[in-house]
C-alpha cells in the first residue's frame, strides 16, 4: 500500500534506522562535556534543519512540546517528518502550517471526547499528507531499540492485523530458540527529539514528574535533544536528588526555559489541560476544518511576537485555572 519508493505522496521518507557505526560516529562527534546550553526558543529552533525527522515527547494532551512546535511553525520549516506515541492537535498544526506532511504515530486526533480530527481527515483523505500508523507498543520498542543501539526489537503484537499489513519495514521471523513466530520492528533514531520537562539544569540534566511516556528512550535514541523546561534549576539542586534525573546532560544539546511550554496541553503537577481552549479549537475546526485551523494559526502562531504574548492571548484566567488544577495533584 505504502511501499517505499512508490508512495503517491511526495512525502519525506527519511531513513530513521541508521547503521550502527554511523549512529555511533554521530554520537561520538557531539560535544558531550558538561557545558551551559541555555538559549532562546528561536536559537533552539535553528538547530532543527529542513528535512529532518523530529520526535515529540509526551503523549496526546500531556507534556506536548508546544513551545518548540510553535517556534518551528513560525520559522516556516520545511519537509520535516515527525513521530510521537499519540498525536493530538499539534499534528493538525504541523500539517496545516506546511512544516511537515508525514507523521508516524499510533493515534491521531485531539482526544476521544472531541471526536475525529477534521483537519487530520482533510489532509489524509485528500492524500495531502501521510499518517503512518503503528501500534503504540511498536513505537515504544522502536525508540527503545534506538536507545539500546540495536537495529530492531522482537515483539508479539501486530501480527495478523492490517496495521502490520500496510507497513513495509517490518519482518516476521521464527525464533531460533523456541520456534515461535515473532515480529521484528526497526530502531527509530530521530535526528532530533523535542521534550518538555518540569525542570532541568543549564547542562540539560532533566527531572521529570509523573508519566514519562516514551521520553527517556526517545532522548537516548535521538541524535540531538532540545529540552524546553518549566524552570531552570541549578546543578547543585540536581546533585541533591540525582535519583530524580531521568535524562542525562550529555544527550541534550539545548535548554530553553519556556513556562507553560505545553499550553494548551498539560504538564504533570504544574497545570492540567486548558479544556476550554481545546473546546474552542475543536469548535473552530468542526465545520470548516481548513478555514478554522488557518484562523487558529494566524491568531495564535503567527500574530504573537513571543511565547509570552501567545500565553497572553490564551489568557491569564485560563492559565491560572489550569495551574490550580495541575497543582491539585500535590495539594489535595
Amino acid at each position: 500500500m505504502w511501499a517505499r519508493g512508490e508512495s503517491r505522496l511526495a512525502v519525506m521518507e527519511k531513513d530513521v534506522t541508521q547503521e550502527y557505526l554511523s549512529l555511533r560516529e554521530q554520537t561520538q562527534s557531539r560535544d558531550r562535556s558538561l557545558r551551559d546550553k541555555v538559549m532562546t526558543l528561536e536559537e533552539a529552533c535553528d538547530l532543527v534543519a529542513d528535512g529532518e525527522h523530529v520526535s515529540l515527547g509526551g503523549s496526546t494532551a500531556s507534556r506536548t512540546p508546544f513551545a518548540m512546535v510553535w517556534a518551528l511553525i513560525r520559522a516556516r520549516k520545511k519537509n520535516l517528518s515527525f513521530s510521537r506515541s499519540i498525536v493530538s492537535t499539534e499534528g493538525d498544526l504541523i500539517f496545516a502550517s506546511g512544516i511537515g506532511n508525514h507523521i508516524l504515530t499510533s493515534w491521531f486526533s485531539q482526544g476521544i471526547v472531541w471526536g475525529v480530527s477534521r483537519v487530520m481527515r482533510h489532509f489524509t483523505e485528500n492524500k495531502l499528507a501521510r499518517f503512518e500508523e503503528w501500534s503504540h507498543m511498536s513505537i515504544g520498542l522502536r525508540f527503545r531499540a534506538g536507545a539500546m543501539g540495536v537495529p530492531f526489537m522482537p515483539m508479539r503484537s501486530m501480527m495478523g492485523s492490517d496495521v502490520a499489513g500496510q507497513l513495509d519495514n517490518l519482518e516476521e521471523m521464527t525464533c531460533p530458540f523456541t520456534g515461535e513466530k515473532i515480529l521484528l520492528v526497526p530502531a527509530l533514531n530521530p535526528d532530533v527529539a523535542l521534550i518538555h520537562v518540569q525542570r532541568c539544569d543549564p547542562y540539560g540534566n532533566a527531572q521529570l514528574d509523573g508519566l514519562t511516556f516514551m521520553d527517556i528512550d526517545m532522548a537516548m535514541a535521538a541524535n540531538r535533544v532540545i529540552l524546553t523546561t518549566e524552570r531552570i534549576i541549578s546543578n547543585d539542586q540536581i546533585r541533591r536528588r540525582p535519583d530524580q534525573t531521568r535524562i542525562p546532560f550529555f544527550t541534550v544539546d539545548a535548554v530553553v526555559e519556556a513556562p507553560y511550554g505545553c499550553a494548551p496541553h498539560e504538564c504533570f503537577g504544574v497545570y492540567e489541560p486548558l479544556f476550554s481552549h481545546m473546546d474552542y479549537y475543536a469548535e473552530l475546526t468542526r465545520k470548516e476544518p481548513m478555514e478554522g485551523v488557518k484562523t487558529y494559526l494566524d491568531e495564535y502562531y503567527y500574530a504573537p511576537k513571543s511565547w509570552t504574548e501567545y500565553l497572553n492571548l490564551i489568557g491569564l484566567e485560563k492559565l491560572l485555572d489550569a495551574a490550580r488544577r495541575g497543582r491539585s495533584i500535590y495539594d489535595d
Binding site: S106, I112, E125, H136, S157, M159, G160, Q166
Partner: peptide, 21 residues
Amino acid sequence: SADDPSVRLPGTGGGNDISSL
C-alpha cells in the same frame, strides 16, 4: 479501503497491542 478511505479514523493507539496480547 485503506487506499482511499471515506473516513480516516484516529487509529489503533494501544488497541492492537491489547487485543493481540
